[in-house]
Amino acid sequence: MKLGNMLRDALRALLHKPVTVRYLTRAGEMVSVPERYRGKIVYDKEACIGCLLCIRTCPSGVITTTEEKKVSFNISRCVFCAQCAEICPTDAIRLGSDFEIVTSEKEDLIVQ
């Protein structure tokens, strides 16, 4: 049993910089994200063949069909599981590194 085990570390922390990472590391520069990060969906319309496998596996009903036999994504419902990107036979769907998806316009959250 000891008393005041943390005294040394608490005082030492005074001399060091805080470990908090700011959201903007520099003005206009975001925190970096790793390579496999799952962010906002990026959709390559040309590569899509309209197999609609993504709709069958999407757990939260993000994906709907469009008139031209392609798909559209409603990001506001997305849970970023990347199942659609995994199932896509032509790699038309990819999850990008964009994580700032808060917006006041609903249209911004629809990827076509």
């Binding site: 608490a10 005082l11 922390a13 005074l14 060091h16 805080p18 470990v19 908090t20």
Partner: peptide, 11 residues
């Protein structure tokens, strides 16, 4: 502020 800095926070 000092309390926060001792906890490695910005405060």
């Amino acid at each position: 502020k000092v309390h926060a800095r001792m906890q490695k926070r910005i405060g």
